[in-house]
Structures are given as structure tokens and as C-alpha cells.
Design a protein around this nucleic acid. Structure first.
Lengths: 196, 196
DNA sequence: TCTTTTTTCATGCACTCGCATGATAAACGC
DNA sequence: GCGTTTATCATGCGAGTGCATGAAAAAAGA
């Protein structure tokens, strides 16, 4: 039996190299050679695990989704009340520190790229309903616990909350908001939802 | 005296070709040759009006800003009350028909590109404060007219409204919302602002 | 017609791109 | 050791990249 390598590990290694290239030099700088150099392996080795450049990008997109999902799950496990959970989850999606900025830069790049690439768009849409229904569930729970006004439409509020977060991400990444302003905006909006 | 050409017209022609390339084939497909072909001129002619590829992109970005600004101004001139104006302006920014989708596709591409290019980011930030203060002014006017709750923070509401719009744009461009859903979400949010 | 100035164009250069190929290298049952 | 399978690598190919250059064309006053 021959040399055995952990393929998942290798793919993750490549995906992370793609992430760094996108973050540092932008989606336009992603090439097989550039990623190989960033990953510290030869271009041929990258090709062995990735059939095409598009495949490589899909891999990187998939890994971003998993990464964000894990972060959200980890934060969710730490919160007590539905409202805390909701707030913490939204904060987790915003570029409030280096790691979240890093994730959001890459996310925005893929967002734009997905507009033109159907496969990426399909992958992009995967996580969205999950997040929205998660938001809606927490809103419903918060209503049941008397933390949020009873007459709110949970699904619409979830969509608005997510859209708000995404819009803030866009604006912040081009340098328009500071983390403090972002947090203040979210809290202002959440405070509004407590009133009937 | 030699052949005289309207430079502004030529630049606009080039900028529009860039727009079409970005819309149809994505930011990655923008090249001097591709744009020249799209504009129906030789590559040398493009180079005569545009010193570098970056310059070409900045030109296209600038023209998008002007285009959107004109559309918003045109819509604004047509509305009666501050609240109608506010709603119509937000709707104007959303991808509710082909032309607005076209504009937003290009806008999103530049948004992502701006994260990595400082010059583009600077250009991108130009229009934002204008739009936000415009929103805030209309909110204040609507409050004065009794159309919106008096205890709203106009600046924060303006930021939230803009972020909401941008987030909806992102989600819609990857195929998540239909125009009807988008309009319903906006009206739901605006209705909330009427209550004290 | 000649000049002068503006505009256009074709072409060259050095480089990078995605992808394919064929030769090695590494690992381990036999 | 051998042989088989897995993994890695260097290299080549055609095409496309941004940018530079110098020649040609176009237009209108002299």
C-alpha cells in the first residue's frame, strides 16, 4: 500500500490558502500558481486535489460556509436567553475584529463572484435559509419569553436583521463604520423590537 | 485645427462598455481588449482616453455613481410627501427590475473590488454620506409632518435603512428574494417606523 | 496643397493564465 | 528486494494580460 495522505486536510490547507489570497490581494489575484505558492506546495500538487480553478474556488467557498457556521454554533451555545442569542449571533456575523473582518472580506468577494457564477451562487444560497430560520426561531422564542414585542413578524424580522447585518458588512469593509458605531446601530434596532 | 472629439462622450462610452462586461462576464473578465471589443473600438483608442486599467475601472465606478445619483434625483423630484420620497428612494436602490438589477450587479462587483483597492474605496465612500444625510433629512421632515414617530433617531434610522437596502441587494442578486418579497419587507419596516 | 495637431491603430514585449503531460518520488504489502 | 499505488513535481502549450511604441489616418487652418 502506498503513501496515504489525509485528503480532507490537504483540501482544507488549499482552501485556506485561497482565503488568504482573496483577503490579501483580492479575488482577481486567485490563480493556481498564486494559491500553490501561498499554500507552500507545487502547482501540480494543488492540481492533484483540485480538478479546476472553479473547483478550487467552490472548495474555498464551502470551507468559508463551514467556518462561519461553526463560529455561529459556538457562540449560540454560550448564550442564555433568546434575545442574547440573537444579538450575539448577529454580532458574530459583523466585521468587529480582525478574524470577523477576514471572514467578511472573503464572504463579500464570493458574494460578488456568485452573481456571475451559478455554482457559487447555489453554494452561497445554502446557508442562508438556515440562518434566517435560526433568527426567526430565536425571535419567536424571545416573544414567548416576553423579551420581544408579540406583534412582530418573526420571518420578516429575521430577513430584515440579516439584511441589516449584510449591509453593515458592505459599508464597514469599504471603511465607512467603526465597530462601535456598528454595535450601537444593532442595539438601537434591537431595542426598538422590545417595544410593542 | 485637427479632428476634435468629445472626450467626455468617449469616456462615457468606454465606461458603459466596462459596465456591460462586468455585468455579463464579471469583474475578472474586464481587460483592455475585452472592453475595447465591447465598446466597438480598437484597444489603442481605449488607451488614448484611459491611461491604465485601474484608471478605466475608476472611470466606470465614477459613472455608476453619477448614474445612480441621477436616478435617485429624478425619483425624488416626483414624490409629494417626505415618507413617499423616502420609500421611493430606497426602492430605487433595490434590484426590482432589469435596469436596477444591472446597476446593482455592477455596484456589488465594485463593492467587493473596493475592499482591495484603496482608490476605488475612496470613490465608493463619496456618495454614501450624501445618501445617508438625504435619508436622515427625509426622516426628520416626515417626523415634522407627523408621518413618522417622533422618537426615532433620524441618523441611526437612515443608516439602518441603507444597510437594510444593501443587504437586500446582496441576497437578491444571488437569487434569494423576489421583487415582491423585497417590497413587502421594506413596507413592513417602514410601517413600523410610523408607530411611536 | 501643405502643415499641424488630434485621434486611431496594429504590433511587440515580457509576463501570467489554466490546464495537460510524463517523469519521479514516496510508501508499504509481498 | 519487487511491484503497485498514491502523491508530487517540473515543464510545455496556446492563449490572454497590461502596457509601450511608432506609424498611419483624419481634420481643418494656412
Amino acid at each position: 500500500m502506498p503513501k496515504i495522505v489525509d485528503h480532507d486536510d490537504r483540501r482544507r490547507h488549499i482552501a485556506e490558502a485561497v482565503h488568504r489570497v482573496i483577503h490579501d490581494r483580492g479575488m482577481e489575484s486567485v490563480s493556481l500558481r498564486e494559491v500553490a505558492a501561498e499554500a507552500g506546495m507545487s502547482m501540480g500538487a494543488v492540481q492533484y486535489y483540485v480538478t479546476t480553478k472553479n473547483h478550487m474556488l467552490l472548495l474555498a467557498l464551502e470551507h468559508i460556509g463551514i467556518w462561519i457556521g461553526n463560529r455561529v454554533a459556538a457562540v449560540a451555545a454560550r448564550q442564555a436567553t433568546p434575545l442574547d442569542l440573537l444579538r450575539a449571533t448577529v454580532l458574530e456575523l459583523l466585521p468587529l475584529d480582525d478574524e470577523r473582518s477576514y471572514l467578511n472580506r472573503i464572504g463579500l468577494a464570493f458574494h460578488a463572484s456568485s452573481v456571475v457564477d451559478d455554482d457559487q451562487a447555489t453554494a452561497m444560497r445554502l446557508g442562508l435559509p438556515l440562518l434566517l430560520s435560526f433568527f426567526a426561531d430565536q425571535i419567536r422564542a424571545a416573544q414567548a419569553a416576553g423579551q420581544l414585542a408579540a406583534d412582530l413578524d418573526p420571518d420578516k424580522e429575521a430577513s430584515i436583521l440579516y439584511a441589516f447585518a449584510q449591509g453593515i458588512v458592505n459599508a464597514t469593509l469599504v471603511g465607512h463604520y467603526t465597530p462601535d458605531q456598528v454595535t450601537a446601530l444593532l442595539d438601537y434596532h434591537l431595542a426598538r423590537l422590545r417595544r410593542a
